[in-house]
């Protein structure tokens, strides 16, 4: 077996904000009827978290549950535990119309941090990122320049961004250009 590595293997950039490839992250896409108690309890047993509200994300130290669409959740769990969690989900939801898939290696995940993180990201996405309009606890799937991406805030100065692995270099380059020295806009 070859050793798994993330798309950019921990690449970093320091400009007006810090961009970092976050390495391996376990991700499970779960589709199904989000109103079903069975699904809620399955998510709870895997992550220990409740279901987020529309457009939201709930996190604790080990993982997160993010709302992706009216019938889709993204579960973020430690990379090594994905197979075990997947087996639990598939067993718990065997009788429900649902789908749980390991998408860990199909994605890349970045962090964008620093006091200027908001305005760096605001250069790239058609989303109102002003304080008050976008806050920790919110999940947003959108377009980042020319590719699909999703992001949420860990705290006031830190974004986590996910995209498809095939466009990881593109997204990293976008972020580094947007975060280059001297490119402050001071919009917020």
């Amino acid at each position: 077996m070859s050793k798994p590595v993330s798309a950019l293997n921990g690449a970093q950039f320091h400009g007006i904000a810090e961009v970092r490839d976050l390495g391996l992250q376990g991700m499970i896409t779960l589709r199904g009827d989000l109103t079903k108690p069975k699904l809620k309890s399955a998510v709870k047993s895997v992550t220990g978290l409740a279901l987020p509200k529309t457009g939201g994300i709930l996190s604790d130290e080990t993982g997160s549950v993010a709302w992706m669409s009216p019938d889709e959740l993204l579960l973020l769990v430690p990379y090594a535990e994905v197979d075990a969690h997947l087996a639990t989900l598939q067993k718990d939801l065997a009788k429900e119309h649902s789908l749980a898939v390991n998408v860990s290696d199909a994605r890349a995940m970045f962090s964008l941090s620093g006091p200027k993180a908001r305005e760096v990201l605001a250069k790239l996405v058609p989303v109102d990122l002003s304080p008050g309009a976008f806050e920790p606890g919110m999940m947003r799937r959108t377009r980042m320049a020319q590719v699909a991406a999703a992001f949420w805030m860990m705290d006031e100065d830190t974004f986590h961004i996910i995209c498809f692995r095939s466009v990881a270099r593109y997204v990293f380059d976008l972020l580094t250009v947007a975060a280059q020295e001297g490119s402050e806009v001071n919009a917020f």
């Binding site: 529309t54 457009g55 669409s69 009216p70 058609p126």
Partner: peptide
Amino acid sequence: YCGVTADETE
């Protein structure tokens, strides 16, 4: 569905 005010490009 998601309550987001989406720009035409999205």
